[in-house]
Design a protein around this nucleic acid. Structure first.
Length: 495
RNA sequence: GCGCCUCUAGCUCAAGUGGUAGAGCAUCGGACUCUUAAUCCGCAGGUUCUGGGUUCGAGUCCCAGGGGGCGUACCA
């Protein structure tokens, strides 16, 4: 931008507010609040630095006392005080009439006040745009969660830490990309419209394409396309993208959420457990400054290596009785009843074991654990365990009682995959509307040969919650899904 | 889905057992040259979520509906 307007040094009162206000097209910013705080830390009170800077943001506080005014300007990085003496501030009267929430650009000398507060003296200033609505209470901000999510553009200014969480999330994604790219992965983008919703067990959203006159599903996982790419000859791929599941909304569930999935040829789940723990420890170190972090007031030790234990072992520990998929089905059903775990006749031993595990054990695992060796019955895309019949080479990392990721050695045998798909169809017919459909193109891809491969999926929102210490997914999703707002007549008639 | 809770001014909150809806902040007007949630004086600001009902009288009690939160179920 070289064609910046000359900076406004005089403003007449009648153009200050909405009526005759002329908005500049650009504003040259040289510095941000936090950088200045860092650069000019520890100045003596009453210092004049001789350093001219230019900053911009919203006026969040204002303290006018006759011939001298103070303001607090907030930008994307933080806040800094504005110092405006009537003698040197252009259009001083108008400056004092700025409202809380107005966007202003200010340039001037960096200095400290007699009380030692780092400030920018207002040598020049420009109204960038006035706010036409009142900002929330400058001390309490917004407390109603509904208002926070619907008016995120206000929330991010007035709620402590709100912006920071999203900045951390962004950095997390950036570090994740670097981590994978450093290991030779390439990032790909696969379809979001799926003719068959596969790759996970979940109810999909349905949409309609007019020209093709066909219903399509919004993807519930990118998995099957990414494995097609391994068949295609990409050896290491990943995708970070939105997936959509037509299920309940809660503090941990948003209908659209961001999933990272990666796949690597010639490798197995042992290697991926190592990569996963290394990745998460790395992100914690970079974002939180330590591999020991705090979540919900409690320490979480993410340092490597993480404990690894089979589903059956962890569950046996909890219930005080050795159980596995070898346990007679009658006994498993009794245990379900004993722990108030609902079950159906159609559940095999594997499904029963997993249900018992999820209801009794998963929520109590705080420090990270790789839970391994899931029943094949509940893992239709995973490869059979190399020496444990009936199980698959699958792991989930459980941290703070929640599933953080899901990975497994991939099933490569097209015949076995076909059988698993049809078993899913049977479950669907038995009333499980989250069961998978048969993806015949995927089977054809497998028939062309999927080399030994491992895959991993990590929910980015859950990971962001963990690393930013947020209790609700809505604090790490900018615009969480809500019912449409009903606008008042006053809102609709504003012009 | 189900259960519990909640909704009052732009924002944060008050209004014993039913009795004229108030305050702080913000906005607007005024005072003030080192404040920092500035302070001080003043004005204005309301379909108490919506619709019914009970009552002489409803923000308050009852019914229905809506928004939201939490828990639970499904799931990541």
């Amino acid at each position: 931008m070289t064609d910046q307007e000359p900076e406004q040094t005089t403003i007449s009162p009648d153009v200050l507010r909405v009526g005759g206000f002329e908005q500049p097209f650009t504003y040259e910013v040289s510095d941000h609040a936090d950088e200045l705080a860092e650069r000019f830390a520890d100045l003596e009170p009453g210092t004049e630095t001789g350093q001219q800077v230019s900053i911009a943001g919203r006026l969040m506080l204002r303290r006018v006392q006759g011939k001298l005014a103070f303001g607090t300007l907030a930008d994307s990085t933080g806040r800094i005080q504005l110092f405006a003496p009537s003698k040197t501030t252009p259009a001083f009267e108008e400056f004092c009439e700025l409202n809380i929430g107005d966007w202003v650009g200010v340039s001037g000398e960096v200095m400290t006040t007699r009380r030692g507060e780092l400030s920018v003296r207002v040598d020049h200033w420009t109204l960038l745009v006035p706010t036409r609505r009142s900002f929330p209470d400058k001390w309490h901000g917004i407390s109603d969660p509904d208002t926070r999510y619907r008016q995120r553009y206000v929330d991010l200014w007035v709620t402590d830490g709100a912006r920071k969480a999203f900045q951390t999330r962004s950095k997390m994604l950036s570090l994740l990309r670097r981590f994978l790219e450093d290991r030779g992965y390439i990032e790909v983008e696969t379809p979001i419209f799926h003719p068959v919703a596969g790759g996970a067990l979940a109810r999909p959203f349905v949409t309609h394409h007019n020209a093709l006159d066909m219903d399509m599903f919004l993807r519930i996982a990118p998995e099957l396309y990414l494995k097609r790419l391994i068949v295609s000859g990409f050896e290491k791929v990943f995708e970070i993208g939105r997936v959509f599941r037509n299920e309940g909304i809660s503090t941990r569930h948003n209908p659209e959420f961001t999933m990272m999935e990666c796949y690597e040829a010639y490798s197995d789940y042992n290697a991926y457990m190592e990569m996963t723990e290394e990745l998460v420890a790395y992100l914690a170190q970079e974002l939180c400054g330590s591999t020991t972090i705090t979540y919900d007031g409690r320490e979480v030790d993410l340092s490597t290596p993480w404990r690894r234990a089979p589903v059956s072992e962890l569950t046996s520990e909890t219930i005080g009785e050795d159980i596995s998929i070898e346990t007679p089905i009658e006994r498993l059903r009794e245990i379900c009843d004993q722990f108030e775990v609902p079950w159906k006749d159609s559940y095999g031993p594997g499904k029963l074991l997993l249900e018992i595990y999820e209801k009794t054990t998963e929520g109590n695992l705080w420090d990270p654990v790789f839970v391994t060796d899931y029943p094949a019955e509940v893992s239709p895309l995973s490869r059979e365990h190399r020496d444990k019949p009936g199980l698959v080479e699958r792991f989930e990392a459980i941290v703070v009682g929640r599933e953080l990721c899901n990975g497994f050695t991939e099933l490569t045998d097209p015949d076995e995959q076909r059988r698993r798909f049809f078993a899913q169809v049977e479950q669907k017919e038995a009333g499980d509307d989250e069961a998978m459909d048969v993806d015949y193109d995927y089977l054809r891809a497998l028939e062309f040969g999927l080399p030994p491969t491992v895959g991993l999926g990590i929910g980015m929102d859950r990971l962001a919650m963990l690393l930013t210490d947020r209790a609700t997914i809505r604090d790490v999703v900018l615009f969480p899904t809500l019912r449409p707002e009903v606008f008042s007549a006053a809102d609709m008639q504003r012009d």
